[in-house]
Design a binder for these strands. Structure first.
Lengths: 100, 100
DNA sequence: GATATATTTAGATGTTTAGCTAAGCAAAGA
DNA sequence: TCTTTGCTTAGCTAAACATCTAAATATATC
């Protein structure tokens, strides 16, 4: 699965986008995040792992808790993808590198 | 289904993103698009209808053909969504309007 | 080390989705 | 108006996905 695929896939779910919005405000533990939703903790945990695989968030352990935080660099990449898209480049494949 | 949801959903499929890349080069008929893929025409037609519902493309009939073209304005909206995301706004809901 | 708390992993289930084939609809031309 | 061409709609299947409950793991505390 290409990097872009996993990113767009991750962003396609509303629950995951909502998690990202919360994390934009500041770091949160898995439990704190789960508390904001009505779905179960395991479900949230699953969403978190998808976001993590897509490199949109990262996690670190702090005692009993696992703290999640936003990876803004990947958002920058996506932003660039869209900007390039609206530019005047050739079609090419997913992993196109252009001028870089 | 919210507008953002349909947009992200539409972008989550690699075939659909590839269609968008082709259309970025210029307008194409449904047949011309389908010819670039190995999957069947009905499948492509289905993807086109999803992209259309998400307002990422538009279509018009030209004789026997149906011509598809990219709606760049929606891409601008998405670009803005990401830019806002990396900004310093409150979490709020999907359809947030901000300064507008 | 036993127990409590925080979170993840495993396994099951209902729903969504991408793909197919077959049938339908619309325009063009005989 | 019958046929051909271009494309979509309908109906199906298999795979993917979101969610749940139950069990497992890891850390902290007693």
């Amino acid at each position: 699965m290409t990097k872009q695929q996993s990113t767009f896939q991750a962003l396609s779910d509303p629950t995951r986008r909502r998690i990202l919005r919360y994390l934009r405000e500041g770091d949160l533990t898995a439990g704190e995040i789960a508390a904001k939703f009505t779905i179960t903790k395991p479900s949230i945990s699953h969403h978190l792992s998808i976001l993590k695989q897509a490199d949109l968030i990262s996690d670190r352990r702090s005692g009993q808790n696992i703290v999640y935080s936003l990876n803004t660099t990947v958002f920058q990449d996506i932003l660039k993808w869209f900007a390039d898209f609206l530019g005047t480049e050739g079609p090419g494949g997913e992993g196109q590198k252009k001028g870089k």
